[in-house]
């Protein structure tokens, strides 16, 4: 029997006046999974995450997080959950050590505060007051407070925004460490490489709806869609006419490119062509799948175009 999912939500809707922040979202995150939410500003990521944390009430739909309704769950449930808000105030006059130790004291089985401070890269800053920390250092305090309770499930809302590259890597290491212990992570991010590096699955949320969902390598048809084969003909290959493959074109920089749904066949034919000319290798051969960024931008642009078209319709058109 499979373990129950850490997060299961169905038909979540949240409206703010005329804004539909969530327009019917279904989400299931398995225990032990790292799940990343991507999406433009205002897409509804924070709204979704905070409903799952129990800080906002959905207008419709239902959510179960670690088997409980987040809107009603009590302290025992909170003890199993870690939260890193997109933004929250700071206890300005307390030191890093005081704050982390204070929060640790709320949990039944916290991590050692000194270790947590080291994990987020704040060693050496323990005695400084929060108001004297830099923006990125404060973000690290947020992270420390999110993990110090040793939660089973961590919500991270744009955890690496404002972190320097090393800080980002440190956080990635922390997330991987948690994931390796079988813990569940739900994070939002604007860094696609971050989602790709960390997540088992990602969802792209646009205007309150999931536009795509899947493993980062496969999302949006990355594995099935058209791939681009390129190589750089040199020597005899440069002089010979190209083989008659449809779509083959010469790029200004001298390379040859082919966008195709059947890249394996294309490479085989190109190899035969080269071999016939006495060249065993295709110089500079690359097969490129669309990146997560390509997929993301394609989806966002498609939705923007759709929205523009809808806005151009006379009043009374469906929203």
């Amino acid at each position: 029997m499979a373990a129950p999912p850490a997060i299961a939500a169905r038909g979540l809707v949240k409206r703010y006046g005329a804004v539909e922040a969530l327009a019917g979202v279904d989400l299931e995150v398995a225990a032990g999974e790292v799940f990343a939410l991507l999406g433009p500003n205002g897409a509804g990521k924070t709204t979704l995450v905070e409903i799952l944390e129990g800080f906002r009430r959905p207008g419709a739909g239902e959510a179960r997080v670690l088997g409980e309704d987040p809107a009603r769950a009590g302290p025992a449930w909170r003890a199993r959950i870690g939260v890193v808000f997109q933004s929250a105030g700071f206890f300005d006059v307390l030191t890093v050590r005081e704050v982390v130790a204070h929060f640790a004291s709320f949990y039944p089985a916290p991590l050692d505060p000194a270790r947590v401070i080291a994990m987020v890269g704040l060693d050496g800053q323990e005695r400084r007051r929060l108001k004297h920390l830099s923006g990125g250092q404060k973000r690290r305090v947020d992270l420390a407070l999110g993990i110090v309770g040793d939660p089973e499930l961590i919500f991270l809302d744009e955890p690496t925004t404002g972190l320097d590259p090393e800080g980002r890597r440190q956080l990635w290491a922390v997330i991987r460490q948690f994931a390796a212990l079988g813990k569940t992570v739900l994070l939002t991010t604007h860094y696609l490489e971050e989602a790709e590096a960390l997540a088992d699955r990602v969802a792209i949320i646009i205007r309150g709806r999931f536009a795509a969902q899947g493993a980062p390598a496969a999302i949006g048809g990355r594995e099935e869609g058209r791939a681009t084969v390129t190589f750089h003909p040199a020597g005899r290959l440069a002089e010979a006419p190209l083989p008659p493959l449809p779509g083959l074109e010469r790029l200004p920089d001298g390379r040859v490119a082919l966008a195709t749904a059947a890249p394996t066949r294309a490479v085989a034919e190109l190899a035969r062509w080269a071999e016939a000319l006495g060249e065993p290798e295709l110089p500079g051969l690359e097969i490129r799948r669309p990146t997560l960024e390509d997929v993301y931008l394609r989806l966002v642009r498609a939705h923007d175009a759709e929205a523009d078209a809808a806005a151009a319709l006379p009043a009374g058109g469906s929203a």
């Binding site: 944390e53 800080f55 302290p75 003890a79 808000f85 933004s87 929250a88 700071f90």
Partner: peptide, 17 residues
């Protein structure tokens, strides 16, 4: 002030009663 600056939210996210 703690309420509006989001400090209370931080505490509310923990098992502190």
């Amino acid at each position: 002030i703690e309420q509006h600056e989001g400090l209370l939210r931080r505490l509310a996210a923990t098992p502190l009663p």
